[in-house]
Design a protein around this nucleic acid. Structure first.
Lengths: 120, 120
DNA sequence: CGGGATCCCGAGCGATACTG
DNA sequence: CAGTATCGCTCGGGATCCCG
């Protein structure tokens, strides 16, 4: 672990500016892109959700982007995918514990974003 | 203010999935792009820094991207730009209080990103 | 129902040269 | 020194149709 102690208030590693294998960069890339945050929020708020249900809730997302975003989120360990071998097929998505750990931090970010230019 | 109380653990507003004017989305867009985090980290760690000094520290950044990123960060109120009318011109950049508020949150994100897949 | 396969466009970014 | 001005390209994302 190359991250400094809590006394250091820099968000990055010793060898900042955070290029290459920066944990902050990797974290941001995991939730980056146009649709991942909406997907995570939908799953987090409403719990386990099916594919087309998600598509309906997230207004404007295309089939392609929903599929690829879900796949990436699953590979990153943020969401869980369960497929039921019925006819027709049923697939359910839900957030992982790892994702639940992330949410309070994102909430702080949202607070920060909402307060911009209001404190002067 | 449409953000819920602390009892609510969702990072977004009432009408999630966070489309349109989501404060989380706006926060993420402010620090988005390829170079803003490295710039902020450099300024935060080393304090007030001149243009070409920044360019040297942030390996690989082009003139164009450094200029445009600095401009956006200044418009968003994250950094402060001071121009000294000397010859040759001297311009110094530094982080604002608003940016300093952001840093602890980014640090938490970095911790989270560093711990991914190590807790199992 | 839950995706895949294609095609396409434009923002984001890089490279280079120039300027007050 | 601190930027502008162009040009060109990659690639994230949109649209549409197809499939088991």
């Amino acid at each position: 672990m190359t991250i400094k102690s809590d006394q250091d208030n820099s968000p990055c590693k010793d060898n900042c500016p955070c290029m290459d294998c920066c944990p902050l960069g990797s974290a941001l890339s995991q939730i980056g892109g146009k649709w991942k945050i909406p997907i995570l929020c939908a799953l987090f708020q409403d719990g386990t959700t099916r594919f087309n249900e998600l598509k309906r809730k997230i207004r404007g997302i295309t089939n392609t982007m929903l599929v690829s975003s879900l796949k990436e989120l699953e590979e990153e360990g943020l969401i869980f995918r369960e497929q039921f071998m019925e006819m027709p097929v049923r697939v359910e998505y839900s957030v992982t514990d790892n994702c639940r750990d992330l949410m309070p931090i994102l909430k702080q970010l949202a607070y920060w974003g909402a307060q911009v230019h209001t404190i002067k």
